[in-house]
């Protein structure tokens, strides 16, 4: 294995570079996945049947909290990668842990929101609108949930093995995934919530 010390650790071997590029290709596919969900949402959002409309069930406060939590977590994992590039393992793990805690809080608010929707009669079977709404939000939420477990294992591995080309590469790829979830949320925040409440 040839290690190029002029590059950041996560980019230092050929394999690492291919892994990162491969993950970007996966993210390209994810963009398309969420595009199909948004396309379906825009088609169905006013087919509310006898159920409530978006304007009737959306509330600004939980949405704003979710947005701030996810935006901040995207910032902290960015700082984590920066600390990793400085070789500061302790700071990196601290930032990654803060990120996961913010992610957990986000998920908590989202679960509260889902329970609230079901409680006020906007469950997944109520109408075409509620079904695509909860499917879109749920797909994003499932990604966050997966990310929490993934991130936890990354932290444990860096703790155990230290910062090597392999663990740095995995951490960097995880950070790409996390930032991507924030990007998807920005679009959900703008074109589902804010558009719905406009």
């Amino acid at each position: 294995m040839k290690i190029d010390h002029s590059l950041p650790l996560e980019y230092s071997t050929d394999q690492n570079q291919y892994n990162i590029l491969g993950f970007w290709i996966f993210l390209g596919a994810e963009i398309m996945l969420f595009a199909t969900l948004f396309a379906t949402y825009f088609t169905l959002f006013n087919r509310t049947g006898s159920g409530p409309s978006g304007a009737e069930i959306f509330e600004i406060t939980p949405v704003l909290i979710e947005t701030l939590l996810l935006l901040t977590s995207s910032f902290t994992i960015g700082l984590g990668v920066h600390a990793m590039r400085l070789g500061n393992k302790k700071a990196m793990l601290t930032f990654f842990s803060i990120t996961l805690l913010l992610g957990l809080a986000f998920l908590g608010v989202e679960i509260y929101e889902f329970v609230h929707y079901v409680h006020i009669g906007a469950g997944i079977q109520t109408s075409a609108f509620t079904s695509i709404l909860l499917t879109t939000l749920g797909t994003h939420g499932a990604h966050v949930t997966l990310g929490l477990f993934w991130g936890l294992f990354i932290i444990l591995q860096v703790k155990k093995r230290g910062l090597t080309p392999q663990t740095a590469n995995k951490s960097f790829i995880f950070s790409l995934y996390w930032h991507f979830l924030d990007v998807v949320w920005i679009f959900i925040f703008s074109f589902i919530y804010l558009k719905g409440m406009m």
């Binding site: 970007w24 993210l27 390209g28 963009i31 396309a39």
Partner: peptide
């Protein structure tokens, strides 16, 4: 790759 994903996404959304 990002532009490719984005183009497919926009075609999907605006086509729909």
């Amino acid at each position: 790759n990002v532009y490719y994903g984005l183009i497919i996404a926009l075609v999907t959304i605006f086509g729909t």
